[in-house]
């Protein structure tokens, strides 16, 4: 099951990347990133069957960080929405040089 797990993880990660590249809604983009994180979690868990509990500990860390990141990121998106009344990615281009 290990090989299949890794393959599944890769596929999910790829889907997450495609989503990031394709979607222009900021929140959905964010969720695609979460999908990528989940795929990575699957990889860690799969490998922990071989290499011990450290993999699972790492998964805990990833989840924690994902939670923190989600909170802060959504707060930012809300802040942007308040200013620009949109979450469309093409409109958020103040960094345009």
């Amino acid at each position: 099951m290990l090989a299949e797990s890794l393959l599944l993880s890769a596929v999910l990660f790829t889907i997450g990347v495609v989503g990031v590249l394709t979607r222009r809604n900021a929140i959905i983009l964010f969720m695609c990133v979460e999908l990528m994180l989940n795929a990575v979690n699957l990889t860690f868990v799969a490998l922990s069957t071989l290499y011990g509990a450290t993999g699972q500990v790492f998964v805990i860390m990833v989840m924690t960080v994902a939670a923190a990141e989600a909170a802060v990121g959504l707060a930012i998106i809300i802040s942007i929405f308040r200013h620009r009344q949109t979450v469309h990615l093409d409109d958020i281009n103040l960094l345009k040089g």
Binding site: A26, L89, I92, N93, K96, G97
Partner: peptide, 12 residues
């Protein structure tokens, strides 16, 4: 400068 679109999508 064309690379600096300011759009997150491009950067992704």
């Amino acid at each position: 400068s064309q690379l600096q679109t300011g759009r997150v999508g491009t950067y992704a």
